[in-house]
Design a protein around this nucleic acid. Structure first.
Lengths: 232, 232
DNA sequence: GGTCGGGAGAATGTATACATGAAAGCGAGC
DNA sequence: GCTCGCTTTCATGTATACATTCTCCCGACC
């Protein structure tokens, strides 16, 4: 593919580290140690820090440097609500405008691929990556088909929250995945028939629901992590 | 206030230049001429270009530099639709959570100030800046009161489109301004009474309508600019 | 003993030199 | 005459040296 600069590489690495929770919330990030860790000079590191600040992952104060922004369940839910509103809007616009043959084919393909991957009654671990890719393709195609580049830009930003990325999913419940893929069926149907309002409502609910699932997942995890210490 | 770095200063200057339409759509921006023009080295210019790229004002390709992104009426309308969805969501969340005494007081004050500035039956030119500030305060207070920092971040991005900033308004029609301020009255009422859904709908319409007004304004301008040449 | 002020150290901000890669023009060969 | 490829030129990418400012600590003065 296309060659990437050190800046881009460092940005991606650092973003990944932050999204994975490598750093503590509020932890300060110093340029020089980061540069040494990444094996580059301060220049690409500074560009990466600036980039991630604008993407909303870092806090910054003039002459005082960068710190990892703190996120709570509240922020994650809000990000999903925003994403639901934005993707719902994109879905409506796409349905109103009508999709190109090519985009319709991509969506149809996504739906069919999902059917196939889920046909065994569960999602096999070796199919995880393909399912995830299918999901990303589905959503990005609709965003693109909306004809409004800004919507994609904004949605991408809602992924820049730890745990909120569309690459993160709760995989342990087949029922939930199945329902989610059923949403795709219905969204595809609504878009094909140019039922704009229905398409919008379906997409809103689809994304909102994913956020609720993730929220419960995180809260359950937090409960498990806390409980062992205390006892009744 | 706080001291600003050259990078921040250059970023703000450059953003302003682009939003004002100083550069032609698609025009390439070279680092060295820009640096000379701004009286700084390439370093702050590069940071500014990177920042504005992420903000969505510039296009960029590796090893090929930056260009001014092209925007059409379509993009502006889409930005307003996105903003309507996001601010509507923020408004609903604010109404659901309930506002602090201080925030309620700010909104009340904004409404009263607007009444006062419009009481003469028109908006005097010398009151323009104050009205504009009032409008910004009103919207930002609600965004803050939503409790979701990401919503403010996203909305700010929708302003980063030429002509789409909340600082731009169509001032030549008192009726429209009056109606817009009447929206503020009703939004304040809905938020005070914790009528979340009503607050959301009002804010959506408030922003959407502003976008439509702006669209007509731009189209009218374009028509005037083109017509003199042809005669039928 | 507490507080204010100065200085040392360190981190960020900026400039500049150097490296890398892209694009365009010129020349040679087909 | 056209095309391919080399070379030159210039813009971007990166490293590094230097400037500025913040922070923290220590000492003097109240």
């Amino acid at each position: 593919m296309s060659k990437r600069t050190r800046s881009q590489s460092v940005t991606d690495q650092l973003r990944e580290l932050i999204l994975q929770g490598t750093f503590n919330p509020g932890e300060r990030l110093y340029e020089i140690p980061l540069a040494e860790r990444m094996g580059v000079s301060r220049t690409p590191v500074r560009e990466a820090l600036n980039t991630l600040r604008i993407e909303g992952l870092l806090d910054y104060e003039t002459q005082r440097g960068y710190g990892v922004r703190e996120f709570g369940t509240h922020d994650i839910v809000a990000a999903y609500e925003a994403r639901a509103a934005l993707e719902g809007l994109a879905c409506r616009m796409a349905a109103e405008n009508g999709l190109s043959k090519e985009d319709l084919a991509i969506l149809e393909r996504c739906v069919a691929d999902g059917d196939s991957l889920l046909s065994s009654g569960k999602l096999l671990p070796e199919n995880l990556a393909r399912y995830r890719q299918m999901n990303v393709d589905f959503h990005e195609t609709i965003l693109r088909a909306s004809g409004a580049r800004i919507l994609g830009d904004l949605v991408r930003q809602t992924h820049n929250i730890p745990f909120a990325s569309n690459r993160i999913m709760v995989w342990d419940d087949y029922q939930i995945i199945h329902r989610s893929h059923d949403d795709h069926h219905r969204i595809f149907d609504a878009i094909s028939r140019r039922q704009a309002k229905r398409a919008e409502a379906l997409m809103q609910e689809h994304v909102f629901f994913a956020g609720q699932v993730l929220k419960k997942h995180i809260e359950a995890k937090a409960r498990i992590a806390e409980e062992p210490g205390e006892r009744g």
